[in-house]
């Protein structure tokens, strides 16, 4: 029983939830306060795109769905909207690097940034689809540009964090 519990705790999905809690707390505190040009850098979207880039399409989507549900739980938006958007962000990140056998570091960083910025364009689109109009406009380009710039800065450390979080096996000591 104790061994099964230990195995569950050591699984990468449990680790992912814990890491996402920390990333989400940074999103709601530090990155909610620091607003370059008045827009919040979406560090959670950058993390999801990093997971897609550093692993594959399925893992990117799954990480996006889990992260999105957690994000929706702290926002006033309908539960599930961010989950769908972040699933697309994770998939986009994976798709950008899929044609390359061993993409160079700068291409990974670029793919993460573009996928995260794409998420900022997809968010008002998905909100409009579910009936929450009013967010589509020129402002979206500025929001995407800020997240793209944020991605270029934060992608490298977040790629390392996502690789560590989602690695298959982790030693529990001994």
């Amino acid at each position: 029983m104790f061994e099964r519990l230990l195995r569950a705790v050591a699984s990468r999905w449990f680790r992912l939830v814990l890491v996402l809690l920390v990333v989400l707390s940074f999103q709601t505190t530090l990155f909610g306060d620091l607003r370059p040009f008045g827009y919040a850098v979406q560090v959670l979207a950058i993390f999801v795109a990093s997971a897609g880039v550093s692993h594959d399409l399925r893992i990117g989507m799954l990480v996006g769905l889990i992260a999105g549900f957690m994000y929706d739980a702290v926002l006033a938006t309908p539960l599930g909207v961010s989950a769908i958007v972040f699933a697309m962000v994770g998939a986009l990140g994976a798709l950008f690097v899929q044609p390359f056998r061993d993409p160079p570091w700068w291409l990974r960083v670029l793919a993460v940034s573009v996928a995260a910025a794409g998420g900022e364009v997809l968010m008002p689109l998905v909100k409009s689809v579910v009936g929450l109009d009013g967010w589509l406009g020129l402002r979206v380009t500025a929001v995407a540009a800020v997240t793209l710039a944020g991605g270029l800065v934060l992608a490298w450390p977040l790629l390392a964090v996502s690789r560590w979080t989602l690695q298959e096996k982790m030693s529990l000591g001994r």
Partner: peptide, 28 residues
């Protein structure tokens, strides 16, 4: 399978939330 289940859950919860159900408040 996990992706399909979570995607369906997202659609289900969006519908529930937009219809004004208070049950998503419990989840939050």
């Amino acid at each position: 399978r996990a992706i399909i289940v979570l995607a369906l859950a997202a659609v289900f919860f969006i519908t529930l939330d937009l219809s004004g159900s208070g049950s998503t408040g419990t989840v939050r």
